[in-house]
Design a protein around this nucleic acid. Structure first.
Lengths: 196, 196
DNA sequence: TCCGCTGGTTAATGATCGTTAACCCCTGTG
DNA sequence: CACAGGGGTTAACGATCATTAACCAGCGGA
């Protein structure tokens, strides 16, 4: 993939995240990358194509990252979920625009592209559920999916706040997600807890 | 407020949540309430006015509901956060469209209305922080705000899943939010836990 | 040197949108 | 009965948008 394409996709994702797909014109995207309007058709077939490539790229990255983690965790199954949480937090902190666009604009996609993105998203949720369910046998399959989606909502809250540094945010989000999904495994640190 | 106005606001919120503010035309909103296009100007000054009233109404309801809870909780301060979580989960489950629009379209507002909505949202976060910080003295003010926003993200994940019934969803969300914000107070129920 | 391709440009086209204008019906009240 | 006003209609206007057309500069290979 040519660097121009990547630049356009990244810039468009930022604009879509800030103003919504229908709130951004081709002229806006072109101006943001230093060319003007119709030049974008040399790289993409249409505005919908730009959005589609954004979402396909984002869902691909998330799913591939999660699957990359799985072989390592077979020996210590309890750590798989931990790794998924940390990886997702990294992705959300590094690509807030992709996170926002992915959860906001999937309805603006054509049926075919939407199906492809949906497939990746469902597969991603499945990876999480496979990691969660052995640790939470009290949850039904549907409950596990809902819990995973809720954890995504927590981790994806990054774009709405981020007043503390990236490292602190990462630590906060991962610890909260861990507690939300595996509440009984939390150990109180040595420092002053809330009971005092 | 006349019932027609409320019908328009509610219908518009659903449409805005589904397709985004710029993805909905005045004709769409009119058709959804059974009138056509320009008739809406008998009730609202402009399309932006409709969005503004939606967001003002939503932020008002959330903030008023939270403040209504506070006096009752003065005797038992530890329960204030519990009540806020339960109330927010109720609101999110009952008004998914308002939740989506509120976190998605605030950027499309005019400066004046945006400031009003922002003020209510900040006050709402403050209510949560005031309830949380006595229970979590280990968190700085900024960390508490970020944690509260993350809890919102968790509770607001409702529109993205909701495959289990409302009661089960409410129980799941409140227990996860509790564990995420107050991890050390979680008690394992008598039933079969993950430790077998 | 000529040629074709890549990646630009500006102008034009047709559709859609927010908004206004002009008009109309109904209903309650003097 | 006259009539004012609330709530609706269709038609029209100007702006904006996605997309296409037509054209052009640079450049690597025959």
């Amino acid at each position: 993939m040519t660097p121009r394409r990547q630049q356009i996709l990244s810039t468009a994702a930022d604009l879509f995240a800030a103003r919504g797909f229908h709130g951004v014109s081709m002229g806006d995207i072109g101006a943001a990358v230093g060319v003007s309007g119709p030049a974008l058709y040399k790289h993409f077939a249409s505005k919908d194509d730009i959005l589609g490539q954004c979402l396909l790229h984002a869902s691909d990255q998330l799913l591939a990252g999660a699957r990359e983690l799985l072989p390592d965790a077979e020996a210590a199954p309890g750590d798989a979920l931990e790794a998924l949480i940390a990886r997702h937090a990294d992705f959300a902190l590094d690509n807030p625009a992709l996170i926002v666009v992915q959860e906001r604009e999937w309805g603006a996609l054509g049926a075919d592209t939407r199906a492809q993105v949906r497939k990746r998203q469902l597969a991603y949720v499945d990876v999480w559920c496979d990691a969660l369910r052995p640790l939470r046998p009290d949850l039904s399959a549907a409950q596990a999916r809902a819990a995973v989606q809720a954890a995504f909502g927590l981790l994806n809250s990054t774009p709405h706040s981020a007043r503390i540094g990236r490292g602190a945010m990462h630590a906060l989000l991962t610890s909260m997600a861990h507690a939300a999904l595996l509440p009984w495994t939390v150990t109180r640190p040595g420092g002053p807890g809330p009971s005092r």
